[in-house]
Amino acid sequence: MTIAPPLRVARMTEGDQADAASREAQDTTAHDALIRDAWMAGAPDALERAYARWSPLVHGLARRAVGPVEADDVTQQVFLSAWRARGTYDPRHGPLGAWLVGITRRAVADSLRQRHRSAEVPSTLEEDGSEEAWLDVDRDDLLAVYEELERIGDPPRQILLLAYVHDKTQKEIAELLQLPLGTVKTHTTRTLARLRTLMGGAR
């Protein structure tokens, strides 16, 4: 057999990330508003569209919080209960994404409570290789941060993620999002202040 095993493929390059981030910045807000309108109208495809848009975030947060196996159940519960309770969504209280992350937060809390009740030992939950264990309060706070970021929306949400998840400098972010450096700095300062208040209030 002469078929060589495939070589490892490189991840997305920095440039790819940049392009993707920049494209996303321009599109998300308008796109999200369309989904919100469909959702509020109870359109037949609204759930599907909301799922396509936010299930990676909901599922990703659930994975971080409860691990890969239970994350499937949490994701399922979130979208099912959100759709059933769609009449209670009020856009004046925030964007649809924030509402969904809020529901995720409660579903995660339920899942963690159940786990503690059944005294099941959490096993290999983390895949990030960090030595420091995630406490339940860390998981909840992480979800709270993401909920707030969804509430704040783009571009501040993106700026924060690029800075603290993707480790970009303010200058790099300004270039990526095609925003003036001053705007990026202002957004960063304001958003950090808002998050600090959020975390302070949660204590």
Binding site: S55, P56, R63, D138, A163, Y164, T169, K171, K185, L192
Partner: peptide, 26 residues
């Protein structure tokens, strides 16, 4: 160069860093 540096050790940014890229399709 990052002006956000003073806040780098805030709880929110620490959690964001620790969690890394979160989004993942189910």
């Amino acid at each position: 160069v990052r002006p956000g540096d003073p806040e780098d050790d805030s709880r929110a940014t620490t959690l964001l860093r620790r969690a890394g890229v979160v989004e993942q399709s189910p």
